[in-house]
């Protein structure tokens, strides 16, 4: 695919982010027992105000990293989406090992979120950063097992081959534990709900507690972009990506991405967040063995 794909990817990210804003407002209003209209109208007004707002700084921050962290985060989302195929042979970056590139994106998110929390030189962001690293590592390990499991039936590390391997049966059926495990990874990558250890309520917003004006808007936008990129990858690896009858491939991928976004938004608003040590214990003691069994089962099925 040529460079003409860049505007298309940007459009896909923007459309997905707008959908998340709507879904979030609807879910929140439904649970709160309030009409969704005012929530929604306010969100867009809110975003416009943020962009024109003033940047307030802290004492002696690491300014370069503070400003760059949202840009890195957004760039990682774009890089992740670039390996997602929108049709046969239609991925911006075609690599024989493209699923490994996605794995690198996941690992670098931990670095970027840490930088974002460390650079303002303030206690709440720093605590958020520490906590995110503590949960980030044990989240990456199940992610690795899940992605390797998905690569086994394809006998390839190419995302394109993983999609093609699902022509007979989607991975969500063949490997039923894969998608739920991967969704937990996604909640962590996008700092949402039960896995929001960096930007949490008990830290008054954690790593973004000191963000103001356009920098705050940028960080929130980058979170949304990463959510869209993650959901497109989840739809590709577990729901057959662009495969489907009648409709064109990109449309199928968009529909399946929207489905994953809905699952993510529901999990955000319905599940509580455990304290860190309880979550870390859960990740190492329960989730890691489960993901290993998942990989074992996936391997036996693929034989």
């Amino acid at each position: 695919m040529s460079l003409a794909a860049f505007p298309f990817l940007a459009f896909f990210l923007a459309l997905g982010a707008a959908l998340v804003v709507v879904l979030d407002a609807v879910a929140r209003a439904a649970l709160a027992g309030a009409p969704a209209g005012p929530y929604l109208a306010g969100t867009f007004r809110h975003a416009a105000m943020r962009l024109s707002g003033q940047l307030v700084t802290t004492e002696a921050p690491d300014r370069a990293n503070w400003r760059l962290a949202p840009a890195w985060y957004g760039a990682l989302a774009a890089a992740g989406l670039a390996v997602v195929p929108f049709g046969e042979g239609m991925a911006l970056i075609q690599l024989p090992t493209s699923i490994v590139l996605w794995g690198a994106v996941e690992a670098l998110v931990v670095v970027v979120v840490f930088l974002h929390g460390w650079s303002p030189n303030a206690p709440f962001p720093l605590i958020g950063a520490y906590r995110y690293v503590a949960t980030g590592l044990p989240v990456m390990l199940p992610s690795m097992f899940v992605l390797i499991g998905a690569a086994l039936p394809a006998r390839s590390l190419d995302v394109l081959a993983i999609v093609e391997s699902q022509r007979e049966m989607w991975n969500v059926v063949r490997q039923p534990l894969g998608l739920p495990l991967f969704l937990i990874v996604g909640l962590s990558l996008t700092l949402r709900g039960p896995m929001d250890y960096a930007d949490s309520a008990d830290l008054a917003g954690g790593s973004s507690a000191e963000d103001s004006g356009p920098a705050r808007a940028m960080w929130q936008a980058a979170r949304l972009a990463m959510l869209v990129a993650f959901s497109a990858m989840a739809a590709t690896v577990f729901l057959g990506g662009y495969l489907g009858p009648l409709l064109p491939g990109p449309l199928w991928l968009a529909l399946k991405t929207a489905l994953v976004l809905e699952l993510m938004v529901a999990a955000t608003h319905l599940l509580p967040r455990m304290p860190v040590s309880r979550m870390v214990t859960f990740l190492w003691v329960v989730l890691l063995p489960v993901s290993f069994l998942h990989l074992l089962a996936a391997g036996l099925v693929a034989l």
């Binding site: 879910a27 929140r28 209003a29 439904a30 649970l31 709160a32 027992g33 949490s200 509580p272 967040r273």
Partner: peptide, 13 residues
């Protein structure tokens, strides 16, 4: 504190 603000709003209502 458990990241369930929508349900919290419902309780307040």
């Amino acid at each position: 504190l458990l990241e369930l603000p929508a349900l919290a709003d419902r309780l307040v209502r």
